[in-house]
Nucleic acid binder design. Structure first.
Lengths: 112, 112
DNA sequence: AGTTGATACCATCAATGTTGAGGTATACGG
DNA sequence: CCGTATACCTCAACATTGATGGTATCAACT
């Protein structure tokens, strides 16, 4: 797919939080979820993915627990905490404001 | 203004290129342009601004020339090169695709 | 037995925005 | 006419975060 896009720094966490907002998942599933949910635009590299998960675990936005995947493999399941849910809300609205502001600038007419 | 937003890494250049697409400007004016054009959402810190300008100058997207500002001050005027104009196009469309992809993910329904 | 795919982790690197400090020159209030 | 604010530029140190690339385990399929 030549349609892939690299991530702008700061957006990965939002996508991950959003994936987890559908219920507990292991990292591999999160990556698949984001890839498929974005129609292949975002391929999530596990290097970045797990760092993001660990980061958010430390911040208390998600909880981690070892378990067994559908394929019978040892896998770590992540789940949103209430704080994580709140963080997702905040980040989502921040993202929306951001996108509007960029749109404003891009559409701005010439000024004196 | 508590409405200010920090920049996601990777977006500053687009805003700067867009500002310059209206004609040559010095750095200070670029910052003002972006701040006003975004209704105060983006306050551009000069540390980042001038680094961005120098970066893009090196890449050949903009040309720099010393001159005198409206206030009679020594100022450096930046102007888009054709390469810079092309870069702006590309980045703008990349940004649009990016925003759509994020929206896709954020709106994605739960999946198996 | 060997390869592929599922699943996780880590260290190093690169890009880029933030912070903060410094420098000059013009303008403007007192 | 002096001082302070404002216009304008530069740079170095730092923090965050995604990319790269290498490692490890184990199931399933050939």
């Amino acid at each position: 797919m030549p349609n892939e896009l690299d991530l702008f720094q700061g957006t990965l966490d939002i996508l991950v939080l959003r994936a987890l907002s559908h219920g507990p998942m292991h990292g591999y599933a999160v990556a698949r979820w984001i890839r498929e949910g974005s129609d292949g635009t975002f391929r999530i590299l596990d290097g970045a993915l797990y760092t993001s998960l660990h980061r958010m675990d430390e911040k208390g936005w998600i909880d981690a627990e070892w378990g067994t995947s559908e394929r019978g493999k040892r896998a770590r399941f992540y789940e949103l905490t209430p704080a994580g849910r709140a963080e997702l809300q905040q980040r989502a609205s921040r993202w929306d404001r951001y996108v509007s502001a960029v749109a404003l600038v891009m559409a701005a007419p010439a000024r004196a």
